[in-house]
Amino acid sequence: MNKRNHSIAFWAAVVVFLVAVLSMTQIVRNEYPFFAGYVILQFIALAVAWSILGGYAGYVNFGTNAFFGVGVYTAVALFKATGAPLAVQIAAAAVVGMTLGFGVGLLTLRMRGIFFSIATIALAIIIETFVMNWRFVGGAAGIQIQRPPVMAPFDSYVKMLFFVQAILVVIAIAIARYIQNSRIGRGLQALRDDELAAECTGVPTLKLKLIACMISGALISAAGAPAAMYLQYADPSSAFNLSYSVSALAMALIGGTAHWIGPVLGAILLGSTQQLLAVTISSEVNVLVLGIMLVLFVVGAPKGIIGLLRPRYRLRAGGKQ
């Protein structure tokens, strides 16, 4: 019963959020809030998606940029080849990201700890090199994208992308929340705590890690897919920029990974700080802020914002939510 009320509250909040986003695109004239808001939403989606593998399962993925870049370039290649609409680009990116997650998972998820993380860094470098040499999508020089005309209720493409990214955020959160409350979530938590003990208690650890890696990969790639349309341009060194990995990781850890709300809070906090600093001081300060905050949280609040907000264990103990 408690669980059901939580579900109703959650979906009500989702509807309110999407309606608010949609009405904002209809009312606000200035494009800048959408331009900045898109980035924050993108980071929420990335942090939540990262946390499915990195938080629930404890496998620290440094290859967020690989999945992100693959999402960008799946969309670019598809758009250039067939002129496919945005929704199709995103769906295709999710499928490719999921496939990549499966492959990477099979190859790397037998490795533990730091070895897994290093393997995921290598992955990004390999794929980036491949894309740099792929003429069809512009190679190292990058590619200009001509946006198609904007669709009905929206009067600008950026506003539409803002709404689309909001939907991706909702999808990412809904999936993360579902996993957290299901036995998959319990299994991931068990294997994060102790993989051998989990395996001996009946948890199919490799299968669960693969599922987490595929879902996380699909969501990251999907969140990256609209980026080319957003910038009207794509090039390998920005699409595969390591800063996506660092940001997603930092936001999830700063927010806390025991609950899906953690990465959301972390991304909102860091994302908006970054956007604010980018206009007031300089975009270079971003990285500094990220670093300082990460250090502060690692030292002062290792369980992240949610660890500060609620006493330990209360999150899960009083029944799952």
Binding site: R186, R192, D194, V203, P204, R316, A317
Partner: peptide
């Protein structure tokens, strides 16, 4: 002992019940 440290005692048992039985 290799408990699932982030879980309560009850949740430790639930893992086995969820996955093995």
């Amino acid at each position: 002992p290799r408990p699932f440290r982030s879980m309560t005692v009850l949740e430790n048992l639930m893992v086995g019940l969820d996955f093995a039985a």
